[in-house]
Design a protein around this nucleic acid. Structure first.
Length: 589
RNA sequence: GGCCCAGUAGUUCAGUUGGUUAGAAUGCCAGCCUGUCACGCUGGAGGUCGACGGUUCGAGCCCGUUCUGGGUCGCCA
């Protein structure tokens, strides 16, 4: 740095400093040259302060100040002076004072930046990502990463106070079957062999329980080579934890206290404990989602029993084929949604594979519905009665396979809430979703797959059903949901080898296959395994919720685009011939 | 892999039915200006209309392909 040692941060200066000689450093936000008087707004992480250069000080200083441009890095020394009454700017936190410059050093010049360093910029995301270092200078972005730092600190403090140890697990690990695609890393010293970057530290943390660490946590990067979304990055951060000698209530109790602490210290928001619990079954039936947003109503109602013998074939056939008929009553929407908008909602549910969206408009002029003519009057009345319909409401109905009916109406529920602005944005509704199914049937592979992962324990009262009715077995698994976002999930794991083998059997693995895939874990389990369970939070999603963005790129310092590339570094890029030869790799593109 | 949207000065955008020299705002450069804080005034520079191909007397505009970015479904145990 230059000859002037910094004494204060820009944003800290105020009336208390009036009369002091200070030195500040930072980037030039803006200059205003009035001819005989030059104002320079200087910005650092703490805020912006106005420096003023008067022609009367020295000619050299004034000439130098006139050459200063935006984003130059300066060191400025002078006296803090109180602004005249008429010159006060109440919009700036430092607007009651200014710095009368005595000395000025241009530490570094800057080219004209391609994006403005301002909070309300509307530059394209492409440019922001290419010039991420400039984008990150914006105060809103700096605030996000201050929040992110705070959350990580609160988590570490809390975990430490509760007896947890942070242990690092490897980034170069073994590729795991089932689950997402792995990012692979070639081994040079073992030609033809590959490491995988971890999708999660799952198996290592379970082994740490075998090792007697008792309570483990880690704030850790995880990698999944799947297609991106607005809320999904190929590398992301988990708050990962595991505990020994606990049942699911212990894990849930600890984690809701953790979240309570984070919300208190970061947002000064009070979360009431205990967090409400809802079974998976109830969540699906009432909200069509395993991560329901409970800040508003619009709940789903089942009308299958009313229309299962209906002459309307669409409904009767759906029930006969094991499907569901679900309805939402959009209260008071009759005069809020035009016919065109209703049709667009029909297109909307098709995104989720629904074949169609039936509706009954209970308008003031009478019942309008394309399906009314197929229904008997008592069927129509029973439907209206079931959903509590009254004049002015519109009832939306989907008849489809259970998955499609839940999915499409669950999403329609969210879409209606957005369009009708039913969501109270000041609320943070936490919810535990529990009793997830242990298994999910994969139609393509014609076998059961683990809904959570193969080491998730079934509920004690359902173990007997493993032989007779695997599909209805519930797991000791739990997700924590906030405003419709899955913040984290976990489970109690299997620590009994007979049960574990039965589980592998259900998943269609032979003993040999299971040992081939997970041998190191099964081997470890032979040497004394405590009952254990844990949970992992998506840190990025927590930060999104805390900072009020729905774009994960806003909470990651150097994020990837939809094609998983970094616009700043241009990664990924081709490797040169020498590197590939050393790794014994040939590419075919 | 499917569907949808966008790409024009440094930046954000406009650009009519396909028609002469592609505009605005802002930023940038220069000059003037001692209380600005979105400073003001005057002047100036700044364009491979994402790329390639086609239709046409003529394409920013129409057609095809492709690239890049965004959203989403599948996918993400």
């Amino acid at each position: 740095m230059g000859k002037y040692k910094r004494t204060h941060m820009c944003g800290q200066l105020g009336l208390a400093n009036v009369g002091e000689a200070v030195s500040v450093t930072g980037w030039v936000q803006r200059t205003r040259d009035l001819g005989g008087l030059i104002f320079i707004q200087l910005r650092d992480r703490s805020g912006i302060v106005q420096a003023v250069v008067n022609k009367d000080v020295t000619e050299e200083l004034f000439e130098l100040a006139g050459k200063v441009r935006g984003e130059y890095v300066l060191a400025v020394s002078g006296e803090v002076i109180k602004r005249a009454e008429s010159a006060i700017n109440p919009k700036m936190s430092t607007g009651y004072i200014e710095l009368a410059v005595k000395e000025l050093e241009v530490i570094s010049k800057a080219e004209t930046p391609p994006i403005y360093i301002e909070d309300d910029l509307n530059a394209s995301e492409t440019l922001r990502l290419k010039y991420r270092y400039l984008d990150l200078r914006r105060p809103v972005m700096q605030k996000v990463f201050i929040t992110r730092h705070k959350v990580a600190k609160v988590v570490r403090d809390f975990m430490d106070e509760n007896g947890f140890l942070e242990v690092e697990t490897p980034m170069l690990t073994k590729t795991t079957p089932e689950g997402a695609r792995d990012y692979l890393v070639p081994s040079r010293v073992q030609p033809g062999n590959f490491f995988a970057l971890p999708q999660s530290p799952q198996l290592f943390k379970q082994i740490l329980m075998v090792s007697g660490f008792d309570k483990y946590f880690q704030i850790v990067k995880c990698f999944r080579d799947e297609d991106l979304r607005a809320d999904r990055q190929p590398e992301f951060t988990q708050i990962d934890l595991e505990m020994s000698f606990v049942d699911k209530e212990d894990v849930m109790e600890l984690n809701e206290r953790l979240l309570q602490r984070v919300f208190k210290e970061v947002l000064d928001y009070d979360i009431q404990l205990p967090v409400p619990k809802m079974t998976y079954k109830e969540a699906m039936e009432r909200y069509g989602s395993d991560k329901p947003d409970t800040r508003f109503g619009l709940e789903l109602k089942d009308i299958g029993d009313i229309v299962k013998t209906s002459e309307f074939k669409v409904f009767a056939d759906t029930i006969a084929n094991g499907g569901l008929i679900k309805a939402i009553n959009a209260e008071g929407c009759s005069d809020k949604l035009s016919r065109k908008e209703i049709d667009s909602l029909g297109e909307f549910v098709k995104t989720y594979r629904a074949k169609g969206l039936a509706w009954i408009n209970l308008s003031a002029e009478g019942v309008k519905s394309p399906i009314a003519k197929f229904l008997k009057e008592e069927e129509l009345n029973a439907i209206i009665d079931r959903v509590g319909g009254k004049t002015g409401d519109i009832i939306f109905i989907v008849a489809d396979s259970p998955k499609v009916a839940y999915d499409s109406l669950g999403q329609l529920r969210l879409e209606l809430a957005r369009r009708l602005e039913l969501i109270d944005k000041s609320k943070y509704n936490l919810l535990w979703v529990t009793e997830f199914p242990l298994l999910d049937y994969d139609e393509e592979e014609n076998r059961y797959v683990a809904m959570h992962h193969p080491f998730t324990s079934p509920m004690d009262e359902d173990i007997q059903l493993l032989d007779t009715d695997p599909k209805s077995v519930r797991a000791k698994a739990y997700d924590i949901v906030l405003n419709g976002y899955e913040l984290g999930g976990g489970s109690i794991r299997i620590h009994n080898s007979e049960l574990q083998e039965k589980m592998f059997g259900l998943l269609g693995f032979s003993k040999e296959q299971a040992w081939g895939k997970f041998g190191f874990l099964l081997e470890a389990f032979k040497y004394g395994t405590p009952p254990h369970g844990g949970l992992a939070f998506g840190l990025d999603r927590i930060i999104m919720l805390l900072t009020g963005t729905d774009n994960i790129k806003d909470v990651v310092a150097f994020p990837k685009t939809q094609t998983a590339s970094c616009l700043m570094t241009n990664a990924p890029s081709p490797a040169d011939e020498k590197q590939l030869n050393e790794l014994n790799i040939k590419t075919t593109v």
